[in-house]
Nucleic acid binder design. Structure first.
Lengths: 207, 207
DNA sequence: GTCGCTATTGTTCAAGCGTATAATAATGCG
DNA sequence: CGCATTATTATACGCTTGAACAATAGCGAC
């Protein structure tokens, strides 16, 4: 009986491959289609290996959720430059690929639908959301100060909620029905909307 | 061997109960927790009955999705009165219960995560989305005309995309983290934001 | 009433699930 | 080079799944 040949992956690499394969399967087949066997096939290993790297399938899925949140928030959290540029980049990053694509929202939705069910996922979610909105709120505070507008905490909070909602909502529209929009249309609408909301130019015409 | 006693449900009623039980299970346990057996328990019948009313479990789930979309869009699609009132009601309805609650978004997300997987769900989704945005676009056209502002199709389209995004995004924020907002805060932010976007009062202070 | 129809039950089945475990191939170290 | 270590394969196990099916209980027609 001939065994398959294989190679031992370098430290931590196989772990990352398994998480990536998990996300591929969730995006392609949904959460219930992301079985241990299917994930293993995708990663090019056999099913038994999963339990060598993770305590359980649930734990692997939770780590995969952390990876999704990171992919959705990391880029936007590290914008640089003056407040105006950062605000513009924040909007553009969230509404163009790779953040805005149908795979992203499939993954996001799959996990969101489990947040109410699984307390562990709920905690991961809450952390990610609070971080994201605080990033935006700080960004708005800097921007409003630059523009010599009121930038008290309450005002920034309301703007952050509104703009966060706007960007999230447009992100979803774009992900779910990207073909209904022209190239760059969503970003343009977002820029114009934010200018209207804040009553200040963000120099979106410079783009 | 004693069989359970039961009663034969009136025309169509049992069908509706099964769909409702399906949604309960999806909201409570997620899509993969919504098994035929669990759904039957919730509906107070045995598992075998499902296949008497539906060709397959998948078909029952698809019909359940239609029910979800209807519950999310019906109320907002039937607002009445002058354009200003209708616009205000449209916003308020989408951001207060029963449309805005954690059960709604769990259901919505569960199905959205499957839209890419299942072509049947994709079609149901697309229909619902187009209808929803067209309703909003018509509403905005009436409103802008009333306010003697430009109401050409292109302008209305851009406003509809932006406001649809804003309302959807705030809906999600409210559903997922309702405890982070004060009573009526989201509706107030939405009203103020829409006024800023359109550059016109919608009389939100009258509420 | 009782008879026929069918909605509902209860049981069974093959397939697929997550997990456990033993055998083994690859790798690093002396 | 030979040996210990362990990453990986392969197989098996108990359980749940959606579906199929025969038996039967409720109910309307007559």
């Amino acid at each position: 009986m001939n065994r398959r040949t294989f190679h031992r992956a370098p430290e931590g690499e196989r772990r990352q491959e398994l998480i990536e394969a998990t996300l591929d399967c969730i995006a392609e087949f949904g959460l219930k289609g992301a079985t241990v066997r299917q994930i293993a096939i995708r990663a090019g290993v056999t099913a038994g290996l999963v339990r060598h790297y993770f305590e359980s399938k649930d734990q692997m899925v939770a780590e995969a959720y952390r990876a999704v949140i990171a992919s959705l928030t990391d880029k936007a959290a590290h914008v640089e430059g003056d407040p105006e540029t950062r605000l513009r980049d924040f909007i553009a990053i969230n509404l163009t690929e790779p953040v805005a694509d149908s795979r992203s929202i499939s993954l996001w939705a799959a996990f969101i639908s489990q947040v109410r069910v699984d307390p562990i996922l709920a905690e991961i979610h809450r952390d990610g959301y609070v971080t994201f909105r605080n990033t935006l709120q700080d960004l708005l505070a800097d921007f409003l100060t630059l523009k010599n507008k009121p930038a008290d905490a309450e005002t920034c909070r309301a703007y952050a909620i509104a703009i966060n909602g706007l960007v999230d909502g447009l992100w979803i529209e774009g992900c779910l029905a990207g073909d209904l929009f022209r190239e760059g249309e969503l970003v343009a609408i977002a820029m114009a909307s934010v200018e209207a909301l804040l009553g200040a130019s963000i120099g979106s015409d410079k783009q």
